[in-house]
Write a protein that binds this DNA or RNA. Structure first.
Lengths: 300, 300
DNA sequence: GCAAAAATGTAGTTAAATTACATAATTGAT
DNA sequence: ATCAATTATGTAATTTAACTACATTTTTGC
């Protein structure tokens, strides 16, 4: 997925393509994940690269081969086996990989942290959440979800507790498109509304774990009455099982009591993305509505 | 701020240091900054590289030279002039530079985007918001804010509209520390509560623009009654002027109707960071409260 | 205008990466 | 256990890319 950087407005020389690429798996992770599948010499190459990744970016093929005690073509074949054209491309990937935060970066806040350090860790954990989300976005059902929302009689945002705030925020965003929207933030309302749901109702249901029983019961009811359920939740959850479409949100592990629940950032951002994509699909009226609602807040 | 990654505990081959470096200046910035100092042919090389940075990482020296209409040694000399040993090193730097988000990346969504492209742009805009926030966090008054919160009689979260959802979410997070918390989300409540504020009340006031008149009036009232005002808002706003401490949130420019307001992600994340830092300062009781409130949600 | 210095390019050399082919090792069938 | 086929590996040769030496051109300062 490429981004076109257009800043020729300020600097006429800049006309290049900046790729903010998927920041998840890197070549070093690929190598490590494939260790059991390598032959004897391939394994030597892999071991050498994993041990000397930094060094490798400035090391010619001949030295890599002798370091790994294999021949030069064996290294080239290793690169080919990893899906690259040759050693040059491996180098490119290595350089790139060494610039990227890894998913196992440890952001745990501890009692010993001073305020700024703790704040930075929180922030970097939040960045990581969004970066991980960025990496999985291509597999999410945006087109399908937006298609059903376009014809919706109403959009119903559902969430409990912290997810309720997300749902409420999302409702506050989507109503501006001109589609009827409501938020159900307690179990009684969720159940009662689901009991009278109709086929052109679209639910956007937000849940961290996807396992709260009465929430699931409500979504089952709504689904039985023909409503569409778009869930933002854990992909292996019961809620995901009930939903028509699921936006997979795999929460980071809870490591200590201080860990803020950054999955709601992911939820919020996904809902932003859904609103924007829906606005685009709806076209001119939605855009006009967005402008009118924004202008309504302008202070004279 | 450097992170030292030590994972030889899990994988004995990994023995390198991964630096999560400051996401600032890169070789392309260096080239651009030195444009006035280049000779005619050097300028051609610079222009070509700035125009074709992405292409350059897979382009041999001979093609770069002919693309720039200079000789090959001129390109090498250019690299030397930029402080590098040769073209190979330039390539390494280019590859590295292109992995880093730049502050001027343009994320505008347009009508022509398909759903996934638009979603990705929204997401990357959100990442950028947090990355920018990360860069300015060291100048924020965490210590001072946390000090006043530690002795607070109550914490009052204030916000209107979208910021109201943020305030509500934050209230829902901070109450778990065991301090009395409330959220004032409409102007009547804000004014009435401010009219009876006391010196040990701490306000956390969230506002995108910091210019809504009745909100400011309320904060002036509270401030006159001795309450502490911690504002998350635009640093040049009226609200910032009233506040005891300000967490500067400079909103990205509104470029089109589709732009989601990502400043609330910044607000949410800052509030997360504040909660965590406050929890640390409060020590064992707060940590215990966090664990108890989490356990209360566990489904048997 | 002229000499010196700097910039630049042509041609040749070296380094690095890749390919072709031969040999060794492994696997599967009998 | 043996043998044939397949796969893996290395040696040597070739190609590509980067770099250097030297000649020519351009620019600068007096």
């Amino acid at each position: 997925m490429a981004y076109y950087l257009r800043i020729s407005y300020f600097y006429p020389y800049f006309n290049y393509i900046l790729v903010l690429s998927a920041l998840n798996s890197a070549i070093l992770n690929d190598i490590r994940d494939n260790l059991p599948r390598f032959s004897k010499s391939e394994r030597k190459v892999a071991d050498w690269l994993l041990t000397n990744a930094r060094l490798a970016i400035d090391t010619p093929l001949s030295a890599v081969a002798s370091g790994a005690t294999v021949s030069e073509p064996t290294v080239v074949r290793f690169c080919r086996k990893m899906g690259m054209s040759g050693f040059r491309e491996l180098k490119t990937h290595l350089i790139a990989a060494l610039q990227k935060p890894q998913s196992y970066v440890h952001h745990d806040v501890s009692q010993a942290d001073d305020a700024t350090s703790a704040a930075i860790k929180v922030l970097e954990s939040s960045v990581q959440t969004l970066v991980d989300l960025r990496a999985s976005i291509a597999h999410m059902p945006f087109d399908a979800a937006v298609s059903t929302m376009m014809d919706a009689r109403q959009l119903i945002f559902v969430g409990l507790g912290a997810s309720g705030h997300v749902a409420s925020d999302a409702c506050h965003k989507f109503f501006r498109l001109g589609i009827p929207c409501s938020a159900s933030l307690d179990t009684q309302t969720i159940l009662q509304q689901a009991a009278i749901a109709s086929p052109r109702d679209v639910y956007l249901t937000i849940s961290h774990s996807g396992s709260w029983p009465l929430l699931i019961r409500g979504m089952q009811l709504a689904q039985q009455r023909g409503a569409t359920i778009i869930a933002l939740t854990h992909p292996s959850s019961e809620l995901a099982g009930v939903a028509t479409y699921t936006f997979d949100c795999v929460p980071a592990e809870d490591t200590n009591a201080f860990t803020p629940m950054s999955s709601r950032l992911a939820h919020l951002t996904l809902l932003d993305a859904l609103q924007v994509t829906l606005a685009i699909k709806l076209g001119g009226t939605a855009e006009n509505n967005l402008q009118l609602t924004k202008a309504a807040l302008a202070i004279p």
